[in-house]
Amino acid sequence: MNTQSPNSWQPLLGGIVAALIVLLGFNSFVILNPGQAGVLSILGKAQDGVLLEGIHLRPPLVSNVDVYDLTVQKFEVPAESSTKDLQDLKASFAINFRLDPIQVVEIRRTQGTLQNIVSKIIAPQTQESFKIAAARRTVEEAITKRDELKEDFDNALSDRLDKYGILILDTSVVDLSFSPEFARAVEEKQIAEQKSQRAVYVAREAEQQAQADINRAKGKAEAQRLLAETLRAQGGELVLQKEAIEAWREGGAQMPKVLVTGGDSQGGVPFLFNLGNMD
Rank of each mutant, 00 (worst) to 15 (best):
Gln4Thr: 14
Glu250Asn: 09
Asp66Ala: 15
Gln4Lys: 15
Phe75Gly: 00
Gly236Ala: 09
Leu169Tyr: 06
Leu86Ser: 06
Thr3Lys: 15
Glu80Arg: 15
Asp152Tyr: 05
Ser172Tyr: 00
Gln125Ala: 02
Asn215Ala: 13
Gly276Phe: 07
Tyr164Gln: 13
Gly219Phe: 00
Val65Met: 05
Leu167Pro: 02
Arg198Tyr: 13
Lys74Asp: 05
Asp85Asn: 05
Asn116Ala: 15
Phe153Cys: 02
Ala217Asn: 12
Ser41Asp: 04
Arg136Gln: 09
Thr3Asp: 05
Ala46Cys: 09
Asp162Asn: 07
Glu246Ile: 12
Ala185Val: 12
Val67Cys: 02
Gln241Phe: 00
Lys242Gln: 12
Gln4Ser: 13
Asp159Gly: 04
Phe273Ser: 09
Val239Arg: 06
Ala244Phe: 05
Leu61Ser: 06
Asp66Leu: 11
Leu13Phe: 07
Ile21Pro: 06
Gly49Met: 05
Gln125Asp: 11
Glu106His: 03
Val174Arg: 12
Asp162Ser: 12
Gly267Tyr: 03
Lys74Ser: 11
Asp162Ala: 15
His56Gln: 04
His56Asn: 04
Ser5Ala: 10
Leu20Asn: 03
Leu176Ala: 10
Gly54Cys: 05
Asp69Glu: 07
Leu23Ser: 13
Ile16His: 10
Gly165Leu: 01
Leu51Pro: 00
Ile168Thr: 14
Arg204Cys: 01
Leu32Asp: 00
Phe271Asn: 10
Ile166Thr: 01
Lys242Ile: 09
Val50His: 00
Ile143His: 06
Val186Trp: 08
Glu141Leu: 08
Ile214Thr: 12
Arg249His: 08
Gly251Asp: 11
Gln194Pro: 03
Gln10Tyr: 14
Asn27Ser: 14
Arg137Ala: 14
Lys242Leu: 06
Ala212Tyr: 14
Ala192Thr: 02
Lys242Asn: 11
Gly38Met: 07
Arg108Gly: 08
Glu151Pro: 00
Pro78Glu: 07
Asp48Val: 02
Ala134Gln: 04
Ala244Pro: 03
Ala134Trp: 08
Gly219Ile: 00
Gln208Phe: 04
Val269Gln: 03
Val173Ile: 15
Lys84Thr: 05
Gln111Leu: 15
Ser5His: 07
Ala46Gly: 02
Gln266Ser: 13
Val30Ile: 15
Glu151Asn: 09
Ala192Cys: 01
Gln208Ile: 12
Gly251Arg: 09
Leu157Glu: 08
Gln125Thr: 12
Pro180Ala: 05
Ser172Ala: 03
Val50Ile: 13
Glu151Val: 11
Ala206Glu: 14
Ile55Lys: 10
Glu222Val: 02
Ser179Arg: 03
Asp170Gln: 15
Arg249Lys: 11
Gln209Met: 08
Pro270Ala: 07
Ile31Tyr: 06
Ala94Gln: 10
Asp154Pro: 00
Gly38His: 06
Arg232Thr: 06
Pro11Gln: 09
Arg98Trp: 00
Ala221Arg: 09
Leu20Arg: 00
Thr83Trp: 01
Phe130Gln: 02
Leu40Ser: 05
Tyr68Lys: 05
Phe97Pro: 03
Ile21Met: 13
Leu61Ala: 15
Gly236Thr: 10
Asp88Gln: 13
Leu240Gln: 09
Trp9Asn: 15
Lys45Arg: 11
Gly54Gln: 05
Leu231His: 05
